[in-house]
Nucleic acid binder design. Structure first.
Length: 621
DNA sequence: CTAGGGTTAG
């Protein structure tokens, strides 16, 4: 006789609940969290600070910051632990300013922050714009006597390393005075050195370190990959004492980015336990190369292998679609997301906007944008840039004022977008106005990229003297992009004399931008100065110009077509050139004041063609 | 707290 099945008793249900409660802060299943939430309220446990803290963590893990906020707001007097959990939840949801608000609020309420609070806040300090905040936290730590804890000092070193050159110097200083360094301290510094490209110093530190774990080896592996020396990378990979998924993925990603898909694929097949990152890397690699069929096949295979795509997977593949202009795959993924009922995060939606825009569908981008209930600064900046690349300057300006109405403060990236919108549409005066108000009214200090936009804007608008004056007065040394914009402007407006005069000293500079050199040589060609022309051409040859040759690409019905200059290899080559000639004629007629109604014999209707084509410049190899 | 895929950028 078999043992009778026992009905679940009150006792076992209670035990189950207690077990779930103790693991609550690791739970990623929203339904379960909601259930437990309900039981907590019924059992009057919501006054227990530890349980509430776990609940906030759980909601944060399920990406439901709204629920976490509700729970937090119902607590009358949060303690340090609750404040910390809430700060971390806000940081994880990239609500940094709200997290700092919580940080101030707790101090007003007489709760003093501890090292945990500071370590969460430091996690938000991810780039140069946070440098001042990091120094501030540094002084706080000293003031409150928290400056001797390895954990927090490691966080501090790491944050400094994220903050540009100034940060790097302070990180080195801090590292040198730290007495209690542990493995993490060394690894932070090691990765900092690799990220600023100081591979030699990184290797030296690697040798000097008291102990090396897998993380250390992986950082050095990444260093070789970044330096482009994949042979050294694979050599290191082979002699590493231990390899984990990160080692494999670093290498696969390295080969993918270098364009060697074949080796990337071989490594992927050899990788023992393929994880989500490996799948994402290889799929995005095929998508970026425009090999759509294989990307789709792998995407399906991944699901057969019961790997569930996460946010990173979706963003990675969509970004690759955007970079290569493969609308078909992007649309397919968007469709499958909708069908599966996946709740797209703001970040995924932002990536979708960018993907549609860069693949030629401004309408697709707008549809996503308008349907978003929670837009962030990136959504607005992306949409502004989307209008810019489609030549809709007015739309970009409209979006710009609307985002301000909705309470968003434009940042450095927004300004790059809006200035380039003015540039693409010839809105010179609007651009100048925005540039001069960006610091005064918005507190955004112009960087060299913003100057680059302005110089391009002025130059294209024919205001060459102003462009040159701006270059002279800007607080930066001109880089290749600045020179490129100037030379391009001179060429466009046949300002040979100006180019000569202003660019004379340029020839002595260490000038390595192939595009600018080629434009410079064409200026000399126009002016008939064949000596300097030859000179410029010689310099181009010396720096190995033409290596990263530009290519246009377009995807039609899941097939990828690529074209380079003077390319005759395409099977429908004649039709392509016929189209180009027709379009050129079309543009010239439009420029001469003829309306769109002017009739041409084109093999495909113009709108259809414009809708589907992308003109993405990218580098071979 | 450190390493891998990953939104906006003349």
């Amino acid at each position: 006789m078999s043992t009778p099945k026992r009905a679940p008793t009150w006792f076992s249900a209670r035990r189950l609940f207690e077990r779930k409660l103790s693991e609550l802060h690791h739970c990623t299943d929203l339904n379960q969290v909601n259930q437990i939430h309900a039981i907590i309220y019924k059992s009057n446990l919501h006054r227990d600070s530890l349980i509430t803290a776990k609940l906030i963590s759980a909601f944060s893990l399920c990406r439901r910051i709204d629920s976490a906020i509700k729970v937090f707001n119902q607590i009358e007097k949060p303690d340090l632990h609750l404040y910390n959990v809430f700060v971390r939840a806000q940081i994880l949801d990239s609500q940094s300013s709200q997290a700092f608000a919580t940080f101030f609020e707790m101090q007003i309420n007489g709760v003093l922050p501890d090292t945990f609070t500071y370590s969460f806040l430091l996690k938000a300090c991810s780039d140069q714009s946070w440098f001042k905040v990091v120094t501030l936290i540094n002084t706080h730590l000293i003031k409150y006597g928290l400056f001797d804890d390895v954990l927090i000092l490691n966080s501090l070193v790491n944050s400094y390393l994220n903050c540009g050159l100034m940060g790097f110097c302070l990180a080195e200083k801090l590292f040198s005075i730290m007495v209690d360094r542990d493995a993490v301290t060394y690894n932070c510094m090691l990765s900092g050195l690799v990220k600023v490209g100081k591979l030699d110093e990184a290797l030296k530190l690697f040798d000097e370190m008291p102990e090396r774990d897998t993380v250390s080896w992986n950082i050095v592996l990444d260093g070789y990959v970044r330096s482009g020396d994949l042979n050294l990378a694979i050599e290191l990979f082979e002699k590493m004492p231990s390899r984990d998924s990160v080692s494999w993925c670093t290498l696969i990603s390295g080969y993918s980015k270098s364009g060697d898909l074949k080796t990337a694929r071989i490594l992927f097949e050899k990788m023992p336990a393929k994880n989500l990152v490996a799948w994402t890397t290889i799929i995005a690699a095929y998508a970026a190369k425009g090999i759509v069929k294989e990307a789709i096949a792998l995407y399906d295979q991944m699901q057969v292998a019961s790997m569930k795509p996460d946010e990173g997977t979706i963003i990675g593949i969509l970004a690759a679609c955007a970079a290569s202009g493969v609308l078909g795959l992007g649309e397919r993924i968007h469709y499958s997301l909708n069908k599966s009922g996946y709740r797209c995060s703001t970040r995924v939606l932002n990536t979708l906007i960018d993907m549609y825009a860069k693949c030629g569908s401004l309408n697709g981008a707008l549809t996503i944008f308008n349907g978003m209930e929670k837009k962030d600064i990136t959504s607005w900046s992306t949409m502004i840039h989307a209008s810019a690349i489609h030549g809709h300057g007015e739309m970009a300006l409209h979006l710009f004022s609307k985002m301000k109405q909705e309470g968003f403060a434009p940042d450095r990236v927004t300004f790059i977008g809006i200035l380039s919108a003015c540039n693409h549409t010839g809105l010179v005066d609007e651009g100048i106005h925005l540039f001069y108000t960006m610091e005064k009214d918005y507190g955004v200090v112009p960087e060299i990229v913003h100057y680059g936009c302005m110089i391009d804007l002025l130059g294209r608008g024919g205001r060459l003297k102003e462009a040159f004056r701006l270059v002279q007065n800007m607080p930066f040394e001109p880089n290749n992009k600045i020179w490129g914009a100037l030379i391009g402007a001179c060429r466009k407006h046949y300002a040979v004399a100006l180019a000569e005069e202003e660019l004379k000293h340029l020839l002595q500079l260490d000038f390595t931008d192939s595009g600018s050199l080629s434009m410079l040589s064409s200026i000399y060609a126009i002016s008939g100065d064949w000596n300097n022309f030859a000179n410029a051409r010689l310099r181009m040859r010396n720096i190995g110009c033409g290596k990263p040759s530009g290519a246009s690409s377009v995807e039609v019905d899941n097939e990828f077509h690529e074209f380079t200059a003077m390319d005759q290899s395409h099977p429908k080559c004649d039709m392509v050139y016929e189209m180009i000639d027709g379009l050129t004629q079309h543009i010239k007629m439009r420029a001469a004041g003829h309306g769109a109604e002017a009739h041409f014999n084109l093999p495909v209707p113009v709108d259809d063609f414009m809708q589907r084509s992308t003109d993405q410049l990218y580098r071979n190899n």
